[in-house]
Simulated assay, not measured.
Amino acid sequence: MKTIVICSGGLDSVSLAHMVAQEQHLTRLVSFDYGQRHRKELDFAAMCAKRLDVPHDIIDLRGIGAALTGSALTDDIDVPDGHYEEESMRVTVVPNRNAIMLAVAFGVAAANDDQAVATAVHGGDHFIYPDCRPAFTEAFERMQKAALDGYADVSLYTPFVYRTKADIVTEGARHNTPFAETWSCYKGGKTHCGRCGTCVERREAFDLANINDPTIYADPDFWVAAIAKKGLG
């Protein structure tokens, strides 16, 4: 199946790209610049496209991102420390981000005669991000079938939507994903901070998968306390 992958440059989407490249027909990677403070992730998406020898489209959504105010990812608001399952992490929501990106990606797929759009939404995202939940992805695919009816037949491929981050690490390792060449940290510093929700979840996932984490963290031990706090919540 000719499939494009929405690739941020993060662990999840890069692992998905490697999986699709081996199991299906990967045609291109599509990334989005929405003014995110961790824009350096796009460099890792570009590295992935080069490694897999496919075209890479970076689509400029900065004007849209600027209008979606109130998120720590796009505004001058501190990214909170802690686990994703804390209420404080809601400040990292960019309203309708996945819905907007998927709509554009489906248009790209239809224009290029691709048959599927793959996205790496997973079970760990469900608590905070409504447009990562199965109810959304299923409804979105139905909507796109109607939107493209008679013009193109494009499916939504979400192999991780009912799976955990640890499952993604396992799949990534199975498909030879170079984890050190992925970027997760929302703070966008020189190295992964080790304290934000994405860093804590990333470190926890490697531990649960029992796979070595090659990531360099500024605070490599913070995740232990964050996980313990989650367990008490």
Rank of each mutant, 00 (worst) to 15 (best):
G107P: 01
A120E: 08
T137D: 02
A120L: 10
H126E: 04
A135Y: 03
D125A: 11
T119P: 00
T119D: 10
D113Q: 13
A116H: 06
H83W: 10
A120P: 12
G107D: 06
A103N: 15
P95Y: 02
F136G: 05
Y84V: 03
E87S: 14
D131K: 02
R97I: 09
T137L: 15
R90N: 14
A105D: 01
A110H: 07
T119F: 14
N112R: 15
Q115G: 15
A103P: 01
D114S: 10
F127L: 11
E85S: 01
N112L: 14
P95S: 03
A110N: 09
P134C: 07
F127K: 10
N96M: 14
V104P: 01
P134A: 07
F127S: 10
A118W: 09
R133T: 12
G123L: 08
A118Y: 03
R97H: 05
G124Y: 08
D81V: 00
A118V: 13
D125Y: 12
A103Q: 11
E138S: 04
H83F: 02
P80A: 09
H122W: 09
H83A: 13
V121G: 03
A110P: 09
E86F: 06
M89P: 00
I128N: 06
A118D: 05
E138T: 13
R90I: 00
A109I: 06
